[in-house]
Each structure stands twice: as C-alpha cells, then as structure tokens.
Amino acid sequence: MEPALVLKTATVLLALGALGGLVMAGMRFAGQPHPPAWLAMLHGSVAAAALTLLIYAAATVGLPALALGALILFLIAGAGGAVLNLRYHWKMLALPKWLIVVHAGVAVLGFALLVIAAWAASGA
C-alpha cells in the first residue's frame, strides 16, 4: 500500500462526502428540520470509508504528520456527525445549526490538511 495513493483516495472520498454535507446543510439552513435519511447515511458511509482507509494506513504503512492531524480532526468531525444523526436526526428533531457549522468547520480544516498532505506526498 502506497501512502500517497491512500491519501489521494481518501481525499476523493471525502470530497464526495462533503458534497452530500453541503446539500444537507443547505436543506437545513433553508428551513427543513433534517435531510432525508438516505442522504445522511450516504454522507456518513462515504466519510467513514475514507476515515477507515486513513486509520488502516496509519496503523500499517504510516502517514505524514499532516495526514495524522487530518485524521484526528476527521475523528472529531465524525463524532459530531454521529451526535447529529443519533441524537437529532433519528429522533426526528431539528438539527441544531450551530452543531452543523462546528461539524463542517472541523471537517473542512481536516480536509485542508489532508489535501496538503496528499499534495506533498505525491511530490507535486
């Protein structure tokens, strides 16, 4: 397993997950109390796949320090996403906008670190 390929793959998966997150945030800020369940599950599953890939790579081949920092931020963002899903979405309660913003902000910071790490690892 090549670390640069893992970083690129995780970056693509997280970018796809972010698109779903943007759609869901747009729905919430447009007045819908929560997104459709299928979209929330797709968003979480794609992000979890990327997170699992990063964890596996960190445990086996090692990752650069920036990628490890991104991994920690994604774990925090994932915890926020789990709270949004289990505490609010599945109970049919309106998702708190402040928590959506914090979840997204932590994920965006992690994504920025991951992109920088992937760029550096590819030698570009």
Rank of each mutant, 00 (worst) to 15 (best):
P3R: 13
P3N: 14
A4C: 04
A4T: 12
K8P: 03
K8C: 08
A10C: 08
T11W: 08
V12W: 04
L13N: 01
A15W: 05
G17F: 01
G17K: 07
L19Y: 03
G21Q: 05
G21W: 00
L22F: 09
L22I: 15
M27Y: 06
M27W: 10
F29S: 14
A30H: 05
G31K: 02
H34E: 13
P35R: 09
P35G: 02
P35A: 08
P35V: 05
P36L: 12
A37W: 02
A40P: 01
M41R: 15
V46Y: 05
V46E: 01
V46Q: 02
A47I: 05
A48T: 10
A49F: 00
A50H: 02
L51R: 00
T52P: 07
L54W: 05
I55Q: 07
I55P: 02
A57H: 06
A57W: 01
A57M: 04
A59H: 04
P64D: 15
L66S: 14
A67P: 01
A67R: 05
A67D: 01
L68K: 12
L71D: 14
I72R: 13
I72D: 07
L73A: 15
F74G: 02
F74K: 03
F74A: 01
L75A: 15
L75S: 15
I76H: 12
A77G: 14
G78Q: 00
A79E: 07
G81I: 04
V83P: 12
V83F: 09
N85I: 09
N85R: 07
L86M: 08
L86F: 10
R87V: 13
Y88M: 08
M92P: 03
M92Y: 11
A94Q: 06
A94F: 00
L95R: 08
W98D: 11
W98T: 08
W98K: 10
L99F: 11
L99Y: 06
V102Y: 03
V102I: 12
V102A: 15
H103S: 02
A104H: 01
A104G: 11
G105P: 05
G105T: 02
V106S: 12
V108E: 02
L109A: 15
G110Q: 00
G110T: 06
F111W: 09
A112F: 05
A112G: 11
L113Q: 08
I116E: 01
A117Q: 01
A120R: 10
A120V: 10
S122A: 15
G123H: 06
A124W: 08
A124L: 12
